[in-house]
């Protein structure tokens, strides 16, 4: 299933820079994403993946650079802006309010209201059950505070929240980090399904196997800079590991460097 990259990209992050004090967390990175494509963002700890992606989800402002959605330059400064462009994010921390229930978390900030402007809890619960029926049919705890749910169930809530609002661009930051094998398989299945629906997905992951399993292209970051973006089918896992650790594209890596990698 090849991705059509002839049209305008769904998202383009062009020359993004973010600095914390004197440290360049993201230093002039350009990446793009096409409909129905999964672009994996990989790199070691502190490479700047999460910071970069937060400029797109509205959690961080970029110091310079421009974001384009469907070729149009846009300004995203708050999470509300991002949601307006149908950008949904599943954070590594899940970003759930522990004291309120799954339904309320799913609709947090976008509650369904009755005609009297009051919360329509029943309608929300009904919608939540519907989405969850698709994602994780075993999930039944819609009315208990999230802090009494297991890690996998919380993850389901975070994913259901992103999926319910018809995202066109989905950002997943380590979506399987807290999950067991069965749930990881479920998430993998979900990503494929969403991809088939034409949704563009940025996938941040530590797991190189996951990345090769799911991604169409792989963008590697090191110390705030983009090492390069490669097509998954053109490279091996070793190539990508080389990019992550040494910071050079496959052709540029010398044989001694490659040997050092395997010691």
């Amino acid at each position: 299933m090849a991705v059509d990259r002839t049209g305008t990209p769904l998202v383009e992050l062009r020359d993004i820079r973010v600095a914390f004090g004197g440290v360049h967390a993201v230093d002039g990175v350009t990446i793009d994403l096409y409909p129905g494509e999964v672009v994996a963002l990989v790199g070691g700890n502190g490479a700047g993946k999460t910071t970069l992606i937060k400029t797109l989800s509205g959690a961080h402002k970029c110091d310079s650079g421009q974001i384009y959605i469907n070729g149009e330059p846009v300004s995203i400064t708050t999470p509300r802006d991002a949601k307006q462009y149908a950008i949904e994010t599943i954070y590594q921390t899940l970003a759930l309010a522990e004291n309120i229930d799954a339904t309320a978390n799913m609709f947090l900030g976008r509650e369904l209201k009755t005609s009297f402007r009051t919360l329509d809890d029943s309608a929300m619960e009904s919608a939540a059950r519907e989405v969850m029926g698709r994602l994780n049919p075993k999930f039944l705890n819609f009315k208990v505070p999230v802090n009494s749910l297991s890690g996998g169930q919380r993850q389901s809530v975070a994913i259901a929240r992103a999926v319910h609002f018809n995202a066109r661009i989905l950002i997943m930051d380590e979506p399987t980090a807290a999950l067991g094998p069965a749930e990881t398989a479920q998430v993998t299945e979900l990503i494929k399904q969403l991809k088939a629906e034409g949704i563009g997905i940025f996938l941040i992951s530590h797991d190189i196997h996951d990345v090769f399993d799911l991604a169409d292209r792989i963008s590697v970051m090191l110390q705030g800079k983009l090492v390069g973006t490669v097509n998954k089918n053109d490279v091996t896992k070793d190539d990508v590991l080389g990019m992550i650790i040494i910071g050079k594209l496959p052709g540029e890596v010398s044989s001694t460097e490659l040997e050092a990698l395997h010691e």
Binding site: A97, I100, L108
Partner: peptide, 16 residues
């Protein structure tokens, strides 16, 4: 108000 009390960051990211 309750969401902010439960997780201020999540509330902010939720667009509140």
């Amino acid at each position: 108000v309750f969401a902010i009390g439960g997780n201020p960051e999540a509330a902010e990211l939720g667009g509140i």
